[in-house]
Amino acid sequence: MSKSTNYIIGVFNDEDVLMDAVSTLKSSGVKIQEAYTPFPVHGLDDALGYKPSNLPIAAFLFGLTGTICALLLTIGTMGFDWPMDIGGKPFVPLPHFIPVTFELTILLASLGMVATFLIISNLKPWGHDPFMFDGRSTDDKFLIVIDLDKNKMDKVALTNLFKQTGASEVNSKIVENH
C-alpha cells in the first residue's frame, strides 16, 4: 500500500470542451476520479456515469413522515386527548387540519432532505479546510482529476490525451493518504 496517491489534473476553460473531454477519455477507457466545476454543468453527471441522486426519495419519505406526524398531532389532540365542542362542529374536521398537515409535510421534507444532503456530502462548518485540487475550480476553471494508480495508461500518455481534448493545462499532484 502506497502512502500517497498520484493524481493528474486536466484544467479546462470551457464547459463544452470539458464535456467532450469526458466522453473522449471515457471512450479511451480512462477511469476518471472526479470532475470539479465552478457551476453545475448539465449532463456532466450522466457523462461521468453517476446514477441519479436518491435525494428526492429521501425528501418524499421525510415528507410522508411529516404528514403522518401532523395527522397524529391534530387528530390525537383535537379528537382524543381533549375534544373541544367548538360551535357544535365535529371533533375531527379533517379539512381544518389540511393547512397544518401541509406545512409540516413541507417542513420535514425540506429539512430532512437538506440534512441528508449535508451528511452524505460531508458538508459541515467545522473541522476541515476541504482539499482542493485547484482553487481556481471555484472561479472559472473546470478540472478532470485522474488517479494514476487506477489507470493502465502512464502519465505521459494521459497528459497527451488531455492536451488532445483541449485542456489548457495539465498538472499533477501527489496527495498524502490519511
Binding site: D45, P52, P56, V114, F117, P125, P130, T138
Partner: peptide, 24 residues
Amino acid sequence: LGWDGSAKAWQRYEAVSLVLAGCS
C-alpha cells in the same frame, strides 16, 4: 461547509434545489 464543487456534489445540489423549489 467545506464545499469542493465536485460533479457529485453539484448533482446532489441540483437535486436539492429542484425539490426545495418544488416544496417552496
